[in-house]
Structure formats: structure tokens, C-alpha cells
Amino acid sequence: MNTFRFFTVLLVLAFLTGGEAVSQANKTMTTLSYSPSLALGTTSDFAGDFHWRGVTFEARRFLDRQLSVGFLAGWQVLSQKTEEPLSVPNGTLSGTQVRTMNTFPFMLTGSYYFSKSEQEVRPYLTAAVGMTYIDQRWDVGVVSFGTYNWHFTAAPEFGVIIPAGDVDVLIAAMYNYAFDSGETVWGADDNTQQYVAFKLGLVWSRF
């Protein structure tokens, strides 16, 4: 829960400092990113390591030159086909398995930009909190198991915005930590899920 407090404080601070907004106060930025992902921990055990399918949409509103708040919505498909035999109580189950996890994060974001100038590469840090809908499906033989849960999620991100004329380019990595919620599709009590979403996106800015 400490993490939750940390991100809440960051977001509140981001909103409060908006009172000092100057020339950038009305600037908005929308981003559409292709976002493959790298699964970690038990998420990786279930769905495999690297996944190519993902998309993220973000909108940010600047409070001043170096702070913005906003929201994001994403979709990552983590999936693998495996022949790895499964241990069951006093036995083994073998056969092709398809394990798939669809994650849909919906989060509020607060971002700090290390540079005030838009004419140069702008590294930034984002703190995001929100909820992620995670659908897990496990197909073994002709049988399919499924479960879904909403997870409270915290997600720090580091990225850069590269100026490129009318449309800028965003490159970032966001670590998503979806806190325990319900049970996994394979019956484990700890349903914490985590992955890093990489972003290669286009940025449209508007004053």
C-alpha cells in the first residue's frame, strides 16, 4: 500500500503545482504508441517472455513547462503456445497448451519533464496509477479455462520525446505492477501480474 500512497502523492503534487502554470498551461499532448511487452515473474511463467501485440493511447495536459497530468488506456496481448508438461497432484498432464493474457490498463498519469525546451529531446518520468482489467485464458486439449479480474495498478515510466516537426516521436518503457486480485486461471492465490510495456509512439501537440 506504500506504493499506492507514493503514486497518489505524486499525482496530487502534480495537480497542485498546476496553480503555477504559465505559458504551457493549455497545451495538450496525445500519443498513440505501438507497445510490445516483456512479461516478468509469474506473468512470464504463464505467458512467456516477450510479446509483440500491444497498443497504448495517452492524453496529457501540461500544467507548466515541466509537468503534465493525464490518462492512458492500453491493450497488451501476452500469449504463448507451450508443450511443457504440467504437474498435477500425483501426476502429470502433457499436451499442447495455449496460455493467453489480455491486459487493459486504464490509468491516471503525472509526468515530469527534465527539459523545458520543446526543441530538444525531452526525457521524462511518469507515475501512473489506475486499474487494469486482466483476462486470463488457458487452453489444454479441447478444454478451456478462463478468469478475469480488475487489478489496482501502479506503473512508473521513463521515456523521451524526440522533436520531429509537426508530429513528435515518443520512446518509453513503462513497468506495470498489477496488484493481487482474485485467483489466477491456474488456481494460484497470488494473482500479482507484472510486465514492462515498451512504447514507440507518435505525439500530437496542441496549444
Partner: peptide, 30 residues
Amino acid sequence: LMAALAVGVLSSCYPDYNLSPTDYDVVLTK
């Protein structure tokens, strides 16, 4: 990027990996 997004979005939520009928075989031992 748009092409990559289109492929990503239009792809199924549940990849089927073009499974053959024998991929549905399972062997359970206890």
C-alpha cells in the same frame, strides 16, 4: 506505426497458433 497498430488491433485477442487436430491431444497420468 499505423500499420503495426492495425495488425496489433485487428489480430485476435486469443492467438490460435494455427493448431492442428493433434495439438488437442492430452495425456494425463496419475
